[in-house]
Design a protein around this nucleic acid. Structure first.
Lengths: 210, 210
DNA sequence: GTCTATATCCCGATAGAC
DNA sequence: GTCTATCGGGATATAGAC
């Protein structure tokens, strides 16, 4: 029964779905509380403001994903100090897919939220992410840098942001793209097969010599 | 003098700048008419609604860019039937930069608007673009297919959508990324230098053998 | 075509009873 | 902790004088 879930969680569950689908500013607190079947005022009681709710939604995913990703990268570097970019990106797949075990559609929701967070809201979510999870981020960047030492740091910066765009945009359109590929090319895909398709693309792009 | 420009143009000029910077839903008609120094009611008189204004802003760019891009691709195919993917993507740069000659910052504004259009607004701008400019789009896809005939059509489909995501996300975040690169790497970038950075990335990704 | 004034609505946030 | 009721404000859109 959904009534067994506490109000705070009900709000988070409804909010993340709506934020991912419609964006932050297009999602009102009234819509969230209506879907969550809780009172409007409970958002401010539990979270203080809409902005804090947005952060809480993101934090619930980042708190799981970031440590798992860091662990996976560290493990890879121990097992294979010569790991390729392809290996590094592939190491993130398992932590990403683990998000599907905690909530249905978790992987896609997370990546969509990440994309919204970087584009909407003038920089404050970007700042939140980099300040709260900066350690994990820079250890990932450093792993990439070790793997392709000839590429200048500034180029790595740009290409990793290109990669972020590739992934989050693809995930935002994943349902439509999977449908089209099924109709036009008789392909059966799901989120994992799409991620597997994107990895060679981004690995080639980050590694390219300009 | 700006007062010599008619009201409709003043609205379009102010709106495109604000839409590109802040996004569509974060930009109110009040803000637009205030910057344009025209009356609030004139937007509805000239465009009917905010949604129609958004389409008019995009159309003003697409009507120039799409034919120019098609011409550039056709010309490239005549001049060099063996054109590489890098050549094909590069052929789009000149039509893009031409937008700077019609309005200051035109290239950047157009690409940011395109990014916002694909990411915000649940599909209705996407539909507007593909239905109004579908002929130009498919001639571009066909040029790519000719350039990399060994890559299965389904893979091209996926990778061109990856590419769309790369470009759209990068352009929507371009201002922030340019700022960060300036602070962290002492790089001075503008939209053209970012475009030049992204072309090798996407060309490598589309061409990669999986 | 351009203006003022306003209708209508939805927003985030909060006061205060329970 | 949860509710009702509401505040104050900003949004799009429009009516109607000029």
């Amino acid at each position: 029964m959904s009534s067994r879930i506490d109000t705070k969680t009900k709000i988070l569950d409804a909010a993340e779905k709506l934020f991912a689908e419609r964006g932050f500013s297009e999602t009102s607190l009234r819509l969230i509380t209506s879907k969550a079947e809780v009172n409007l005022a409970s958002v401010n009681y539990h979270f203080g403001s809409k902005r804090e709710l947005i952060r809480a939604v993101l934090a619930r995913y980042l708190d799981q994903f970031m440590p798992a990703a860091s662990t996976a990268i560290t493990q890879l570097q121990q097992d294979n100090p010569q790991a390729s970019l392809f290996d590094i990106f592939s190491a993130l797949v398992e932590p990403l897919l683990q998000l599907n075990t905690v909530r249905v559609g978790g992987t896609r929701t997370f990546l969509q939220l990440l994309g919204r967070g970087y584009i909407e809201s003038q920089g404050h979510l970007r700042w939140f992410i980099t300040s709260q999870y900066g350690t994990h981020l820079s250890s990932f960047v450093s792993a990439v840098h070790t793997s392709v030492p000839d590429i200048p740091e500034a180029d790595i910066f740009w290409r990793l942001h290109f990669t972020l765009g590739t992934v989050v945009f693809t995930m935002a359109s994943a349902d439509a793209l999977i449908d089209i590929a099924a109709n036009d090319f008789a392909e059966k895909n799901n989120i994992e097969t799409v991620i597997r398709k994107v990895i060679p693309y981004i690995a080639a792009g980050v590694a390219v010599s300009a």
